[in-house]
């Protein structure tokens, strides 16, 4: 999931004001909340954090794949990768706009990303070392993102829900192109198959971390679920992801790097090892393999683009002063 450890600020049911009770009633009846309607301050703040983090993840998520555009093995693969990275940019824009309907400005969101106050998904702090990683990212990372985003289409906040519907429609291509790369590599030369296995080895646990900490350590879930801005618990989604992904790995002839992975007939799902949560918290704190590089690249892009943004505003002003706007 692209939003991990989002702090939720709510009031317990006993302490709710009449407005809050009415608001919760609307959510319980599956009504959508729209921008100009009354909402508890905690709902607004939590959503800004969550949608903002989701948007930042889409934007920073361009970097690990952007890394391979100039080195794609064929022109077709280059076009596909470019199209996918373009989509990620688009998804970031849909989500920033949804967050802005809550009264936060685009510049403020970016400022909070650049200062480290707002986070993006931990997964993007891992490097993409070989071409097989482009396959594994599409298959696993986009697969995990889809797992989270599909239920969010039913979230209570209208603009977020509509952004999710748009994004989910475009996301299927991402996972399929990734899996197609994995199929090619896994059925290729022994060296190519080894690269595919290596990519799975490195990205498996970071992908499991995308769903956030285990439910027993996930302190903000209850409020967010009551507000329907989180639809499933972290462990539910992680389990679904593992159950879906393991047979796909088997089909490729690859081995999931978990010696304890075992089908559990009774629960109708796999038993599997949890990721190293110390590593997860270290990556969130900024100590992952690529944190500095990723944030550095974003800040540099923002600063290097300043002249362009300024020039466009100056040009628009000049044009406006030459040609008065049609009379109202």
């Amino acid at each position: 999931m692209y939003a991990q450890l989002v702090k939720s600020e709510g009031t317990s049911r006993e302490d709710m004001s009449p407005e809050e009770i009415a608001f919760q009633g609307r959510i319980d009846r599956n009504e959508k909340i729209e921008p100009k309607e009354w909402m508890p301050e905690g709902y607004r703040k939590t959503l800004i954090r969550q949608i903002g983090q989701h948007a930042h993840s889409e934007i920073v998520g361009q970097l690990p794949e952007g890394n391979w555009i100039t080195r794609a093995p064929t022109l077709e693969r280059k076009q596909i990768l470019l199209a996918k990275v373009q989509d990620e940019a688009g998804h970031g824009l849909y989500l920033y706009c949804a967050a802005e309907t809550l009264g936060v400005s685009r510049d403020e969101l970016l400022e909070r990303l650049h200062s480290g106050d707002m986070k993006y998904s931990s997964i993007f702090n891992y490097p993409t070392l070989t071409w097989a990683d482009m396959g594994a990212v599409g298959w696993l990372v986009d697969g995990a993102a889809i797992m989270n985003q599909v239920p969010l289409q039913r979230t209570s906040y209208g603009p977020y829900s509509r952004a999710m519907i748009r994004i989910c429609k475009e996301e299927s291509f991402h996972q399929r192109q990734g899996y197609a790369i994995m199929m090619k590599m896994a059925n290729g030369t022994p060296a190519q198959k080894k690269m595919a296995q290596d990519a799975l080895n490195r990205l498996w646990y970071p992908s499991l971390m995308m769903f956030g900490p285990s439910d027993k350590d996930s302190v903000h879930s209850a409020q967010s679920m009551a507000w329907k801005i989180k639809m499933n618990t972290n462990d539910e989604l992680r389990q679904k992801f593992v159950d879906q992904t393991v047979p796909q790995a088997e089909y490729l002839g690859l081995t999931v790097p978990d010696p304890d992975l075992k089908w559990n007939e009774e629960k109708g799902g796999y038993d599997f090892s949890e990721p190293d949560w110390d590593e997860f918290y270290q990556v969130l704190k900024g100590n992952g393999p690529c944190n500095k590089e990723r944030l550095g690249a974003r800040v540099k892009a923002w600063e290097d683009g300043a002249w362009y943004r300024d020039a466009m505003v100056a040009h628009a002003k000049k044009k406006a002063s030459r040609r008065p706007v049609a009379a109202e």
Binding site: I80, A83, D87, F173, Y179
Partner: peptide, 14 residues
């Protein structure tokens, strides 16, 4: 290639 149907993914994998 922007459309999911561009990619041949076997039915077995769901």
């Amino acid at each position: 290639y922007r459309h999911p149907t561009f990619y041949d993914i076997p039915d077995e994998i769901g």
